[in-house]
Design a protein around this nucleic acid. Structure first.
Length: 409
DNA sequence: TCAGCTTCACCCATCAATGG
DNA sequence: CCATTGATGGGTGAAGCTGA
């Protein structure tokens, strides 16, 4: 079958015969790809997708620390798969890859060590409507909540906290953790609530706080309250959930994702996925010890009823340990990929560009059944949270997507 | 034991861009 | 107009390490 010349119904060209040629010849933003060899690795530098914020499907817009733009998986899914093919992300985070795959009619697989990932991703692979959500919110007894943790009053007005406790109890009955029999509407409501727990506007349950992708400690919140002379305002939890639901669904939802599967475990051990059953892997691992997922997620763990101490998120401090981790994950991807399938493995520059993680990934792939096609660098300006500590955008931290491209032999 | 050094743990609390 | 979004790193002091 000549995949290179076929076009699927969505209009995306599929399964290019030569990904490297397409990247080399790419000029979608009026700029030619800069190709250079550094220490035997071929780099392709260009702007490959838009740098503008919020240009992908609205259903992606849930808060999570460290997530790539949906345009990244879209770029590879469009070129390397066709409708019905299987796409996997072993480090799915908020689930950008599986959700984008489902939106494009692919079978979506995903995994993450953090149990929050399934809670944030699964509801967006189901078919839920605003009407379903509004109706369910009507059935909740909002006055029935009992405050368990008074320290959370640093974030919430007592009435808000009682409402959140009522919602937690309702969720525990309708969509218990670890159960496969969850009510998809309750599952959706929990996903939305997890993104509204803290923030800096009236669309969040808390008083003014840091953005919800990095919840501050109780102590810090008390200091913020003092400095701003605020006490947390009363919030209409149901109204906030309804409003965010409307926003998330404004572009529609994923057409009931067929055969999707989400796992909670190590990226290097996914025995639930059969040998040779995957067409494309698009992923991005944690970058060394840069992002502290456990600390960021304490408030969400409370809401969801997850014991944060039981979430064993590995931190790889040294480059050697990190490279070993990547090698074991790539070994597992080699097992589940079909011959001719691809891996797009994204990293960023860390430690002010002194550590080039893509070189470590390149080395980790050595000896595995992969053809190493090169490193694609998506180079563009964007703004980020580091501004709040006076770190200028574009100067420090991660400012580009660097994607190691592999083809399964 | 201790000086001298390195590493670790923790704290901090924006603003530009975009879309409704 | 206003709500919402976004892959930190430098400063600090404690703790750890090394060699005499």
């Amino acid at each position: 079958m000549n995949r290179a010349s076929s076009l699927e119904s969505s209009g995306h060209p599929v399964a290019t015969a030569d990904l490297v040629a397409e990247i080399r010849d790419f000029a979608g933003f009026g700029r030619a790809t800069d190709v250079e060899d550094v220490d035997g690795i071929r780099y392709f530098v260009n702007e490959f997708w838009t740098s503008a914020q919020r240009k992908s499907h609205a259903i992606h817009e849930i808060s999570y620390r460290a997530c790539f733009k949906a345009q990244l998986p879209e770029f590879f899914i469009a070129r390397l798969t066709r409708a019905g093919d299987t796409v996997h992300d072993p480090f799915m985070g908020r689930g950008t890859t599986p959700v984008q795959a489902a939106l494009m009619g692919r079978r979506a697989l995903g995994n993450d060590i953090n149990p929050l990932s399934v809670l944030l991703t699964r509801p967006r692979l189901a078919s839920v409507s605003l009407g379903d959500v509004m109706a369910a919110l009507e059935t909740i007894d909002w006055s029935g909540g009992r405050i368990g943790r008074t320290d959370l009053l640093a974030f919430y007005h007592p009435t808000t906290l009682r409402r959140l406790e009522a919602l937690r109890a309702w969720l525990a009955a309708r969509a218990p953790l670890g159960s496969t029999e969850v009510d998809p509407v309750a599952d959706w409501i929990r996903m939305v609530a997890l993104g509204r727990l803290s923030g800096h506007s009236s669309g969040f349950f808390s008083g003014r706080s840091m953005p919800p992708n990095q919840a501050v400690s109780i102590r810090s919140q008390l200091r913020i309250n003092e400095r701003l002379r605020q006490s947390p305002p009363k919030r209409d939890v149901a109204r906030i959930i309804a409003r965010k639901t409307r926003s998330l669904l404004r572009d529609g939802s994923a057409a009931a994702a067929v055969g999707s599967r989400l796992l909670t475990g190590h990226a290097s051990r996914t025995p639930q996925i059969a040998d040779g059953s995957v067409d494309l892997v698009v992923t991005s691992p944690p970058f060394l010890d840069i992002v502290h997922y456990a600390a960021d997620n304490w408030l969400r763990c409370w809401f969801a009823g997850i014991d944060p101490d039981r979430v064993a998120i590995d931190m790889h401090r040294t480059e050697e340990a990190w490279t070993d981790m990547v090698a074991s994950v790539l070994g597992e991807q080699a097992r589940i990929l079909r011959s001719g399938g691809h891996v797009a493995f994204e990293v960023g520059e860390v430690r002010s560009g002194r550590v080039l993680l893509e070189r470590l990934v390149w080395r980790a792939a050595e000896g595995l059944p992969f053809e190493r096609l090169g490193v694609m660098v998506n180079d563009q300006d964007f703004t980020k949270t580091a501004n709040c500590w006076g770190v200028a955008n574009g100067s420090k931290g991660t400012n580009s997507n660097r994607i190691v491209l592999l083809r399964r032999i």
